[in-house]
Design a protein around this nucleic acid. Structure first.
Lengths: 209, 209
DNA sequence: CGCTGTGAACTAGTTCACAGCT
DNA sequence: AGCTGTGAACTAGTTCACAGCG
């Protein structure tokens, strides 16, 4: 397929497809059609074919997609054929829960440094033996540990400040759990995980519909 | 404004506007223009005016929007002029962290029941004194506590099963933290909070760009 | 004069429908 | 025959540009 700008939603869906494919592997299914995969992911079959078409041809006409191959190809497209190193700031309830969450590791994301602003917490060891560091050490430790993605689990009021530190430390991707909109220069991509927004969406739908 | 279907993205943005407005109240700003609010939220000014126009007229020409009034109106639109009751299933690291997260309460969301499938956990008291209940008690306790929104923090493998229980218990909105696509009948709205998808997005952008 | 409210123009994203392989 | 790959048609969402009002 000739060059074309890839919709952001396509990348999100590829990630969803990859999970469905992992499920299919567990069931031992060797092949899947766009129709079946679409059912599992709650999308239109043509959408799946179109999404994949941005990156090449992965299917066999009259047959479908070989599950293992397709999963491998999607993971490669997403850049998941390597391990990614994460640095996390804000070791409150949520931050600690995320570090302990085994899904991250399973998917190839590894925490390599943890930070907090609270002097009482600095030096404490986390469940996995990793120490909590002062935010002032962030640039140095990010460099030393080779952290590539920054995770922000602080209160909203200081999230922008931490983001700035990450940018200084040459971090190119930020996962923001604080309920605020973060500004970052063009070279740094910010993704927000905002569950209060999602709750508000539910509240709206329960109210009006 | 005459009737029109409201884009899902509009609701999400209203939620973001409300946070920015809370920030402006803290700063003591009485009035805000769509231009200024747009900067704070990282969107186009016309977008804000259009989003609001779906619901009525809230501004003063030549002046802007009165911050407090607009926040009140947006909260009312979203259905946040009441308290919402949440039931949560899966009291692992993440589930416990969410319950302890004070932001929820501040925004008007209150946990009224907690569940887990692990028999070892059932009967244990959480930090706030609330007991962990067996999933078999879910329908009864949801009814008794008046839970309106279900929160799923279980492993992906059982998420659909829990969602089905919520639907049986007449829950009309589900916030799903499990990394899987959940099916629910039309009367039940599902919102997914999928941070591995967000991480995959970052991985993709760091890989290709 | 300045800023909102809004139809019109534009852009992006999704779905259709069928050609093209296997 | 069956399912993918894809241009074309359609739908949705965003931005422009200016009329309308304070």
């Amino acid at each position: 397929m000739k060059f074309m700008k890839i919709p952001a939603a396509t990348i999100t869906r590829l990630s969803i497809y990859s999970r469905a494919l992992e499920g299919l592997i567990n069931e031992g299914a060797p092949v899947v059609s766009s129709k079946r995969l679409a059912e599992l992911c709650g999308v239109n079959p043509a959408q799946i074919r179109k999404d994949l078409a941005y990156f090449g041809q992965f299917g066999v006409r009259g047959v479908g997609y070989y599950v293992k191959e397709l999963l491998f190809d999607i993971k490669k497209i997403l850049g998941l054929n390597k391990e990614w190193s994460l640095a996390i700031v804000g070791m409150g309830n949520l931050g600690c829960a995320l570090m302990a969450h085994e899904n991250f590791l399973k998917q190839g994301y590894r925490f390599v440094a943890a930070f907090d602003a609270d002097p009482m917490k600095i030096g404490l060891k986390l469940a996995n033996g990793m120490p909590i560091n002062a935010v002032s050490d962030l640039p140095r430790l990010c460099r030393e540990t080779g952290a590539e993605i920054g995770v922000i689990c602080t209160p909203a009021a200081v999230a922008q400040e931490i983001a700035n530190r990450f940018v200084e430390a040459a971090i190119k991707g930020i996962l923001n759990f604080a309920p605020t909109q973060i500004q970052a220069p063009k070279g740094c991509k910010v993704e927000n995980v905002d569950f209060s927004v999602k709750l508000d969406n539910l509240a709206y739908h329960l109210t009006s519909a």
